[in-house]
Write a protein that binds this DNA or RNA. Sequence first.
DNA 1: GCCGCGGCGTTATGCTATAACGTAATCAAA
DNA 2: TTTGATTACGTTATAGCATAACGCCGCGGC
Lengths: 136, 136
Amino acid sequence: MGHSRDIPADLTRNQGLVLGALTGSGAPLSAYDILDQLRSEGLRAPLQIYRALDKLVERGLAHRLESLNAFVACTDAHCHRKGLIAFAICESCGKVDEFADTVIEERLAAWAGSTGFTVGRTTMEIRGRCAACLGA
Amino acid sequence: MGHSRDIPADLTRNQGLVLGALTGSGAPLSAYDILDQLRSEGLRAPLQIYRALDKLVERGLAHRLESLNAFVACTDAHCHRKGLIAFAICESCGKVDEFADTVIEERLAAWAGSTGFTVGRTTMEIRGRCAACLGA
DNA sequence: GCCGCGGCGTTATGCTATAACGTAATCAAA
DNA sequence: TTTGATTACGTTATAGCATAACGCCGCGGC
Ligand SMILES: [Zn+2]
Ligand SMILES: [Zn+2]
Ligand SMILES: [Zn+2]
Ligand SMILES: [Zn+2]
C-alpha cells in the first residue's frame, strides 16, 4: 500500500489552496470547480487557479486529465511522474486510479525507435467503471 | 503501405463536407477551424460541425484528439477502430500518426483484470517530433 | 394519412483557457 | 544600498471549445 505524498512546504498560498482542493476531492476537478471552492478564500479569477495548476503539474503534484479537461492530485507516493503514467477514470463515481506500466512504456519506445518519432509527453486515459461501482 | 480509406456514400451533405475538410488537412482541425473552412459552403453554426463530427467519430471515420481538442480523419484502411488506437502527434508539423499495438492492449486488459476495472474507451496520445521534423 | 425518427438550422448560453496590463516581494550582483 | 532579474500575484478583457433548447423538414413504416 502506498502512503500519501508529503505536501511540500514551499508552495505559495494559492498553490497550497488549489492542491488542498484537489486532495480533498474524491474526483477530478475543473479549474472552475476549484475556483468555486476557493472563492471563500478570496480567489476570484480563473487565472489564479490556472497559474497555480501550472506549477503543481510542473512539479508532478497534480495531473491534468485531457479527456476531462480536469485535474487531480497525484496519488503516487513513489513519484513515477518520470515516465508514462496511465489513468483509469471511473465514469460512474469519478474515482481516478493512477498507475505505471514499464512494458507499455517499452512498447512505445520501440514504436518510436522504429519510426524515428521523438517522444515527449504521453497521455493515457482509460474510461470505464471501477470494481466498486460494478459491484453496486 | 496502407491505401486510403473509401468514403462511404451514405454520408449526409454536412458529414461529407466535414470529413472532406479533415481529409484535406495535413493536421488536426478544431471544430471552429472546420467551420471557417466551410462557411463558403453555407455552414454557419458550430453545432452543424459538432453534429457531423459526432457521427463521423461514432462510425470510426474520424477521431477526436483529446489533448488538442481537435479532430483528424481516420487514416487506417483496415479499420482498427475496434480496440485501442494510439496517436503520435508531431508538435512541430502537426502530422498525426495512428497506430495500434496489441501488446499494449493486452497489458491494459491485464491491469484491468487484476483490479476489477471495466475498460470502456481508451485514449492514448503521444506528443513529440516526427522523423521528418527532426531531420530538418 | 399519420407517426416516429434523424438530420437540419438558428439563437442563446455555458464552460475552458489565455492575453495583456500593472503591482509587489525576493534575491543577488554591483 | 541601489539596481536589475525573477517570480508570484490581482484584475479585466477576450479567445476558444462545446452544448441546450427550440422548431422545421424529409423520409420510412404502418
Ligand atoms: Zn502522479
Ligand atoms: Zn466507480
Ligand atoms: Zn482510425
Ligand atoms: Zn513533424
